[in-house]
Amino acid sequence: MTDPTTRPLRFGVVTPVLTDVNTWRDEVRRIADSGYSTVLMPDVPSWQPAPGPTLALAASIANVRVGTWVYASPFRQPWNLAWESHSLSVLTEGRFDMGIGTGRPGLIDELRTLGIPEAAATGRVAQVRDSVKTLRELDGTDLHTPVVMAVRGPKARALAAEVADVVTFAGSPDGSRADVAVLAEEFRGKDVELALHVSVVGDTVAAFMAPPDIDTAALRAADSLSYLPSDPAAAAEEILRRRAENGFSYVVIGLNSSRTLAPVVAQLAGS
Rank of each mutant, 00 (worst) to 15 (best):
P4I: 14
G12P: 04
T15K: 00
V17H: 09
L18H: 09
T23P: 07
R25T: 14
R25A: 12
V28N: 09
V28W: 08
V28L: 03
R30I: 01
D33P: 02
D33K: 12
S34I: 11
T38P: 01
L40A: 08
M41N: 09
M41W: 13
M41G: 04
P42W: 04
P42C: 05
D43F: 07
V44T: 08
Q48F: 02
G52T: 12
G52P: 06
P53S: 13
L55N: 04
A56I: 13
L57V: 15
L57F: 09
A58P: 02
A59N: 09
N63M: 08
W69G: 10
V70M: 12
V70H: 14
Y71T: 10
F75M: 00
E84R: 02
S85Q: 03
S89E: 15
S89K: 05
V90Q: 04
L91F: 12
L91Y: 13
T92Q: 07
E93R: 11
E93L: 09
G94H: 03
D97G: 06
G99S: 02
I100V: 15
T102S: 08
L107R: 06
L107I: 09
I108T: 14
T113P: 06
I116G: 01
E118T: 15
A119Y: 15
A120D: 15
G123S: 09
Q127W: 03
D130L: 14
K133M: 12
T134R: 15
R136N: 03
D139M: 01
G140Q: 06
T141P: 06
D142V: 04
L143A: 05
L143V: 12
H144I: 08
P146F: 04
V148S: 13
M149C: 01
V151D: 03
G153E: 07
K155A: 10
L159K: 04
A160G: 00
A160D: 03
A161F: 10
E162V: 12
V163Q: 00
D165T: 01
G171D: 10
G171H: 07
G171Y: 11
P173L: 04
S176K: 09
A178F: 12
D179G: 03
D179L: 10
V180I: 13
L183T: 10
L183S: 15
A184F: 06
E185K: 11
R188N: 11
G189C: 07
D191N: 13
V192H: 05
L194H: 06
L196C: 08
H197R: 08
H197F: 10
H197M: 07
V201E: 01
G202V: 02
D203I: 05
D203H: 05
T204W: 10
V205C: 11
A206N: 01
P211M: 04
T216F: 05
T216S: 02
L219D: 03
S226V: 14
L228Q: 07
P229F: 01
P232R: 07
A236P: 02
I239F: 07
R241I: 03
R243S: 04
R243A: 01
A244D: 14
N246C: 09
Y250V: 06
V251I: 15
I253G: 00
N256T: 13
T260F: 06
T260V: 09
L261M: 04
V264Q: 02
G270C: 00
